[in-house]
Design a protein around this nucleic acid. Structure first.
Lengths: 194, 194, 194, 194
DNA sequence: CATGAATGAGAGTTCATTCAT
DNA sequence: GATGAATGAACTCTCATTCAT
């Protein structure tokens, strides 16, 4: 596959991403993607063979970019509390965003593809986030910023709350204030002065 | 509509429920329901006009029954901690259950039907559950069973954790131990002795 | 399936037969049959699910009718030689017929469906024809009409010659005179006076 | 066309032959051949314009080689009976061979290309074989090995039996014993002692 | 009320064929 | 000459929905 093909492949994935953002996963057909890309019916099949495959490739790209973002922000020179707040603010932005988010599509995809533990990207990301938060809390405790007796438990609790907010945002609607309220509640329990 | 019709209507809804449990919401076709009910294609249209409508009716029935269940267990004569534990155990059972649960179908349904606030059953149920838990905690605090400075915040936090566990169970898999761990974590923060 | 459906099913098979006669087996698509029958695309699928299935049903009908024909002619009151001649003449007519014959389609069908011995209709028909011819020759020998030391061998030989003529007619072309010549050659070896 | 082109042309034909052997004629697509040859889609079109054309060229090559084979074996120094037996044995080997035979593809090709008499290679080969057998029988009769009153009739009969066996092998299955039985039957009628 | 045959739109997929490089 | 990306027609199959009985 030449340079040109690689470009086109990327173009298709980027365009398909928009389609998934708009329609979720299940409703998207090869035809939808063909039309969004403005290529021929057969053309798409030169690159991908199913919406499922396309979606997984989109996710791969997405994950790479997200990882880069994470590592970028973590390098920042700041206190544990600052970084945690930054992380939570990032999550809030993500979960309130209606446009330009794959959240719903990802859920739908995992609904029908109960991937085995090893391959389950969601689980990997969840666990990885728990570890990062745990480290942050531990650092905060050492610094005297936080008070916490069960750092990993607290980290896990935070992540499940965030998951709960995320799915709630997609199904019952969640306002900016509601998210703030939950974040504040969690931080209050963590902060020393309290 | 005669007595007979009412019976048939109910029969269709009960059978359709099984189909939704099995396949989620989006993948279910009128044909699926017709075949599951073993009635004629045209027959189904006499009662319902789309899978969406059928699903909403199924949900209505479901909600009524769940409510009954709730009020039943709440009438039980027990301490606040007991009742809360009972409630959490019930939630655990529900979210670990792979078979016989509409969870996935409900999520899928709400993904594509972002119902306005007033009609959003999920939201109503969520808020109602928050209020019940809040009351329980308040009672517990009064009894000296619990210690809590922000009862409604705590209730909300609990519900979001449960939501997080629920969606996680559907997408990344959640074990009985994982649920217990989360429940325990929340209770520890609530109980006086700790 | 009601009376009407049975009629339509039969109508489809009869129409499909014409298509197979015209185009053989492999080239025929569901679309061809849909168009020949002037029914809707989906309509055909209510009755049959593939060209292969349709062809097999066409063959079933065909075989029934052919069997009836055979038994009809065999009941005739005549000498063995007469009947054998009648049979050969019938075969000749069949193999020279360009129009209205499934021969080519049958060959194509069996090319790609190497059916196991038990289900192979061609084999059954071949063996059954051998047995009939054998009986005729035996009767002829008893009557003094024929002379033959290996009746079953002779019967088999005849059938293979007929098969050879049949495939030759479809591939290299065979004239009426050529068929007569072969039939005559076989009969000469059989007849007493020779 | 340069030397290199001629080589490539030959390479394509040899590779295509394998494809036809495996899939018959009708089912073979240009894509199949392109993939088997591992050349570019466009590249194939520089040499050939359709599967039909390719198949005819494959047949040409095949015929040349077969002819060479024939003339080779005929040069052998042996009695007429020996040569005839050799020929029949060769035919038997050919018709029992499932692998590496174009038989089915050839039939399929001639089914849809009812070539005019002059161009019909099958007919030419058939007639030529008849003549060779006829000569052999005549020689055998002169030598006193065979007894036969109608040499050309007998030769033709033999060839039709062989054709019948060939198509039977492709459609209803034929065992080695069955072929032997037929060959034996024909030779018995020919041999003097019988 | 109930049936189930019929329709036709639409999705998936494959390939012959072309054409810019 | 050679490549292989691109196109678009053609085919298979499935359903929501209608309608005569």
């Amino acid at each position: 596959m030449g340079e040109k093909s690689i470009q086109k492949r990327k173009y298709i994935l980027e365009t398909a991403r928009k389609v998934f953002v708009e329609k979720g996963f299940k409703k998207v057909t090869m035809k939808d993607i063909v039309e969004a890309c403005d290529i021929s019916r057969g053309g798409l099949y030169l690159y991908f063979e199913s919406t499922s495959q396309i979606f997984q490739e989109v996710l791969k790209l997405e994950t790479q970019q997200t990882d880069d973002l994470f590592s970028g922000s973590i390098k920042a020179d700041a206190t544990a509390a600052d970084i945690l707040l930054l992380f939570l603010r990032e999550q809030k932005k993500e979960l309130l965003r209606k446009q330009d988010t794959l959240t719903q599509a990802i859920y739908e995809f995992y609904f029908e593809n109960q991937l085995p533990k090893r391959d389950n990207m969601l689980k990997k990301q969840f666990d990885s986030a728990v570890r990062i938060i745990e480290k942050l809390i531990e650092t905060g405790v050492e610094n005297g910023e936080f008070y916490c007796e069960d750092c990993v438990g607290c980290a896990r609790n935070m992540m499940f709350v965030l998951e709960g907010l995320k799915i709630s945002a997609q199904t019952m609607g969640v306002t900016s204030e509601m998210v703030d309220r939950e974040i504040l509640y969690m931080l209050k329990n963590l902060c020393v002065d309290e």
